[in-house]
Write a protein that binds this DNA or RNA. Structure first.
Lengths: 112, 112
DNA sequence: ACTTAATACCTAAATTTGTTAGGTATAAGC
DNA sequence: GCTTATACCTAACAAATTTAGGTATTAAGT
């Protein structure tokens, strides 16, 4: 997995989508989920993920609950009410952006 | 057009795709082409475009030729041999990245 | 007992990329 | 003479991600 440079800015939407479908997840679980779902094609690094999660908490889009599991702390994230609205907005926006990119990528663009 | 934050990193691939289809284009023309093709949904600002073009020239992926048209200089860009190879690679990579994002965005992801 | 892999959290410095906010200059339309 | 469109550009800043670590527990292998 050389690079993720193509999905810059989409990380937030991906996090929100995961939490829209799962009600609660913890960070490490998200990285595994994305790797498995995309068959190792996409890897969300923890160094990118954790700051992104903290920012979403600061913005009031996510809540957290700590739970002890097997002697380790897990920090579960879930969408706030505001987060649920934002999830819809951000996911729609990303889908539209992708649609635009695909117009460019997947057509013969003899311009003018 | 509030923001392009979703397409970060894809600008290079878009430039290469435009030049793959058109053999030569100038910067201002690229911005117009993308706006028109995406029906104003995507806007590539000149401030993002020109530095990106210069970088691709520095990397040996693009050649330039200046031409006088109506008393103004136009700088036409075209793919070098190396640029043609990179175009294929980068476009494929972006398509795969998009496919991965779509797996996440467009399915019920009850994980675990 | 020791080491490695997996789980689970995290940060800091540096880089990359893009935005914001300009600047220059010519041509065309009113 | 003023505005819009064409056509190039840069510099300062902000945002997002990468690189490169760190800490700590549990499970598995030797």
């Amino acid at each position: 997995m050389e690079s993720n440079q193509f999905i810059k800015g989409s990380l937030t939407a991906i996090i929100l989508k995961l939490l829209e479908d799962n009600s609660r997840m913890y960070g490490y679980e998200m990285t595994k989920a994305v790797r498995e779902l995309t068959k190792e094609k996409m890897n969300i690094t923890e160094a990118a993920l954790y700051p992104a999660l903290h920012k979403l908490v600061d913005e009031g889009l996510l809540d957290t609950i700590n739970e002890m599991v097997d002697g380790r702390v897990r920090k579960y994230y879930s969408l706030t009410k505001k987060g649920k609205k934002e999830a819809t907005t951000k996911i729609d926006a990303l889908n539209e952006a992708i649609a635009s990119v695909q117009i460019i990528l997947n057509s013969k663009l003899a311009y003018e």
